[in-house]
Amino acid sequence: MSQSWHGGHSMYIHEQKNWPQFQWDKENLAELLTSVRYRQGRLIGHMEALGFALREEAMLQTLTQEVIKSSEIEGEMLDQNQVRSSLARRLGIDIAGSVPADRNVEGVVEMMLDATQNFQQPLTEDRLFGWHAALFPTGRSGMHKITVGAWRTGERGPMQVVSGSIGKEKVHFEAPDAEKVPEEMTRFLDWFNTNSDHDPVLKAGLAHLWFVTIHPFEDGNGRIARAIADMQLALADESPQRFYSMSTQILKERKDYYDILEATQKGALDISTWLTWFLQCLDRAFLGTNDILSNVLLKARFWEKHTSVSLNDRQKLIINRMLNGIEGKMTSSKWGKMAKCSKETAIRDIQDLISKGIMIKEEAGGRSTSYVLNDSTKK
């Protein structure tokens, strides 16, 4: 029994008779896919030509971005230093000034690393439940208790994507009924693990859409869909090393992302528009790698230039933080907080760096003096 009208719009894509037999314009997409694959290959070649240490740092920055931005798309802000420290620890990369990470940060990092480092392992129900449990370590989403590490149940009524204030809600999408989820997910996972007819990059876009349309969990579907796409992109690269961040680009284009997703989920089984957007977004994500690379080279040049200068651990920590980009200005009180030392010690550290020509006082003056790195190392 299928009504063709739900609250004034025709069927959702998953209610179409031949769901999930997606179609797309293969000829039109072929050209775009070729150019995306070409740029992807060049980018990986470029990164592999870097020395080991630079490549490690580039990967650490890329994964840090990916984890932070995927959460930010959902409106959740994670602490950059915690994410970076958690990733470095798990990847066995030695970084200065490692900080302990909260459970929720550890969870997102765990999921992202499992997806990208173990991309050759099949994606199973059990593995997805593990990711989901890692995302919600307290069994809650915000204040609400949710079903964790299992498919959603129908207890709360239909699973809808809604925006707007109470009384003025707009339903953007309604997912398949909860009792259909196990069967839908079995079919999805069978396809994901076995079907190799499609180019893996195209398959990443397809998997993202298909998973998020089933919407199998009570919460976290967007982040898991992006992790699945990342897993598929690692398969496309045939490498666990990540040098571009799709989520960073999706965040920049968040409005288009949601608009195209909604239009596709309310449309027929031809998903050419979605796949075109996905490939173009990925193409733009490669450009973002230039920013990461220039920052990596900048840091490397900075440390090369100052190899012979003796610095204490606090100074190394804060300089690295400044090179990674900090929020706002560096002041002596901010230094004290970050390095966990007294203001007096902070002032001594800063004065020492000024005398060594590594830092300079900013012109502005005013109530609190701020300091910057003295260098061409500043972009």
Rank of each mutant, 00 (worst) to 15 (best):
P137L: 10
R37V: 11
N195V: 04
S355E: 12
T147S: 14
T377S: 15
A30N: 12
K17E: 14
D313A: 12
S294C: 05
I93C: 06
F278K: 03
S98H: 05
K203V: 01
N104K: 11
T369C: 05
D237F: 13
S342F: 09
I93F: 15
W5R: 09
L261M: 15
D177M: 05
R84H: 09
A364F: 03
L91C: 02
N312R: 12
N295T: 09
S4P: 06
L50Y: 10
M338N: 11
S98T: 10
A285K: 03
I224H: 01
R226D: 01
A339T: 09
S370K: 08
S247Y: 03
S71I: 13
A150G: 14
D177W: 01
S141T: 08
D79P: 03
Q65D: 13
G288L: 06
A263F: 07
A134N: 10
N104W: 14
P176W: 01
G288T: 12
D114P: 05
E344C: 07
P100L: 14
L50C: 06
R42C: 07
R152K: 09
H14S: 09
E74F: 06
T116E: 05
D219K: 02
A204H: 02
R84L: 14
F119A: 09
S308W: 11
K69W: 03
H132L: 10
G328E: 06
K329Q: 06
V201F: 02
M47F: 10
Q21Y: 13
E66S: 04
E344A: 08
Q120H: 12
I271Y: 01
G139Y: 07
S239A: 13
G41W: 13
Q315C: 06
R37T: 11
D352P: 01
V109F: 01
S368N: 15
P20L: 03
R140D: 10
F52C: 04
K170M: 04
D219M: 06
M59Y: 05
A115I: 05
R89S: 07
A49T: 12
A339C: 11
V148D: 04
A300D: 15
G75K: 05
A115Y: 08
N195I: 04
M185L: 08
M111G: 09
L91A: 01
A339Y: 08
N28R: 11
K379W: 11
N312Y: 13
D102E: 11
T289V: 08
G142S: 05
P216G: 00
S333A: 10
Y258I: 03
A234C: 08
Q160P: 00
L29H: 08
L123D: 06
S294G: 04
T153M: 07
V212R: 00
D375L: 07
F22S: 02
A339W: 09
K170A: 00
A300I: 14
G45P: 00
S85L: 14
L323T: 03
F192L: 14
K180Y: 05
T377C: 14
G92W: 02
K266W: 02
Q160D: 02
M159K: 09
Y244L: 11
D219Q: 03
T307M: 07
W151N: 03
T186M: 06
S332R: 12
R37C: 13
A96C: 07
R55E: 15
E238G: 09
K329H: 04
I360L: 13
F192N: 05
S310D: 15
K252C: 07
A150D: 13
I250D: 01
S376E: 14
T369Q: 12
S2K: 10
G222E: 02
K329R: 10
D352G: 05
W274G: 11
E125Y: 04
C341K: 04
L123R: 06
S165L: 15
